[in-house]
């Protein structure tokens, strides 16, 4: 088990101007190998112009079991959305 290469999470920018997006994960001995493997595994058909790799152990995630309370503060604030405001139809360009 100790002989296993660490796991890396792979993020790919599909074209300039777009965000890097999580593509999946793979095992590699180091970052350089992770990037090369990510190229072979996730961009065989020109799906990427940039690759980020992060060792999986460095990812911290919110807990889905606490989602209800965790996102609760935003739940009753409809006034953050533009459609909350009642304005006359004649009003243009807003």
């Amino acid at each position: 088990m100790s002989n296993q290469w660490p796991l890396w999470e792979i993020f790919i920018r599909s074209k300039q101007g777009l965000d890097h997006k999580h593509a999946g994960s793979l095992h590699a001995a180091d970052a350089e190998m992770a990037i090369e493997n990510a190229r072979d595994v996730y961009t065989r058909r020109m799906e990427g112009v940039s690759i980020w790799v992060v060792e999986s152990k460095h990812i911290h995630a919110s807990n889905p079991d606490e989602a209800a309370s965790f996102y609760d503060p935003a739940n009753d604030k409809v006034y953050r959305h533009p459609t909350f405001y009642d304005l006359p139809d004649e009003l243009k360009h807003m």
Binding site: Q4, L7, G24, S25, H27
Partner: peptide, 19 residues
């Protein structure tokens, strides 16, 4: 080979290691 890797990685998210 790629398809095998996508699926192994997806399986690993369930807590079973590649080894």
């Amino acid at each position: 080979a790629g398809h095998g890797l996508y699926l192994y990685s997806a399986t690993e998210t369930l807590g079973t290691g590649r080894d």
